[in-house]
Design a protein around this nucleic acid. Sequence first.
DNA 1: AATATTTTAATTGTATACAACTTGCATTTT
DNA 2: AAAATGCAAGTTGTATACAATTAAAATATT
Lengths: 236, 236
Amino acid sequence: MKDASRRKKTQLYEHLKTAVMTLALTPGEDLDEATLSEEFDLSRTPLREVFRLLAGEGYLELRENRGARVTGMSYTTLRDFFLAAPMIYGAILRLAAKNATTAQLADLKAAQEDFKTALRSGSGADRAMANNLFHEITGTMADNTYLLPSFKRLLIDHARIGMTFYQPQDQHMAENLSVASSQHDAIIAAIEAGDEAAAAQLAIDHWNLSRDQIELFVTPAGLDVPLGSFARKTPA
Amino acid sequence: MKDASRRKKTQLYEHLKTAVMTLALTPGEDLDEATLSEEFDLSRTPLREVFRLLAGEGYLELRENRGARVTGMSYTTLRDFFLAAPMIYGAILRLAAKNATTAQLADLKAAQEDFKTALRSGSGADRAMANNLFHEITGTMADNTYLLPSFKRLLIDHARIGMTFYQPQDQHMAENLSVASSQHDAIIAAIEAGDEAAAAQLAIDHWNLSRDQIELFVTPAGLDVPLGSFARKTPA
DNA sequence: AATATTTTAATTGTATACAACTTGCATTTT
DNA sequence: AAAATGCAAGTTGTATACAATTAAAATATT
């Protein structure tokens, strides 16, 4: 009968994880122990252990005598993010190209198929989570104890940032999504070929694309068009 | 009366932390809830929360239904370590040089004085912990949410690896320690001058020195001396 | 009326009892 | 004697009651 409890715990864990990454729980939002305890039919003790676990991974922040809240995002977050991400992900993909097993490569290809499916017919959340799984697998491939903590932390906010542009609001953003998909294909090829340099470069390209998407979101198309013109920024 | 409990908790937390870093608790060693609970006069519930916290930071590993143990170290650990450390620490020092406040710089200088004192009159554990504090402060200076998790993870094993050479076994190792101290001074200077490039380079130099120390430990001096000679490898 | 102060309710943290699981030992079986 | 099974002791996980803290409401004070 302990199996049932274990299941409820991982269920809660997964629920909170995806809720944070898909912004169903917004950054800074408070979590209520009592409510969740009832909803997941789990006593407060194991529930709080899940909180600790999620806090350790960067999903939640715990405040003394003041409950748990979703890890916040500020404008400095974005800056820190794009500073660290290319470096860490470059190293991850380099190592992935070096160390990936054939089984892992098969997983990665499957994840990419799911990602493409999500792009075609999924919701924004589906896309963000499919994309997240793809990158998590590259992390597994890299298999470096010391890089993974930062990488996983990056992936959380990558998903959250991504939620803003996985529901593209104009032609340009939509096309960037298919570019992202092509980049995934190129990443797979580089890993399969064991081409470390190419993999590292693709990591950087991939983040540059993300940054472009953010800029398109922050500065919507049309606003930086020459005065007097009503045309949208021409999509490439 | 809750203050007392809070104190006991942080006491336990700090105790386990330093015990892990100084190898008082050896990698892979099992921890006993009941014993610790009695020793620190703390019930099992908060004690297990401390376990979770330490596990999240990489000090401990928790196994389902099978208690906590000190995070293991294998020979692959060293490889992973020296692969990730120069990159992460390079970035940390670069950011430190960019962002450090004068208050933080004062902290760093104080930490370096403590380190020097430890080199003169402290135990191996004192030296490792003083060195650890120095580096932790540079992490605070860098102030990047995404780099810190990996950096802190690195510092744990840096301390543990360091324990092997903070009790130098020959002249060469001893001299390397004073080189390490000079490098700390140089790091302080680079940060104070805001010289990012110099700081980044010093990070790499610092790890190369650590790697040399390890090699001296793994391959003791004298064994690779030409046949027929009884002279020690000449210290630089 | 605006600000302090006290009281009350709600939430978080700890201790403890109990249930589930793991492990080592003894007994049985082949 | 070796392997398998069952039992007992010890350890880990969960629920719940209670204590401490915080937040909110109500009352008092200027």
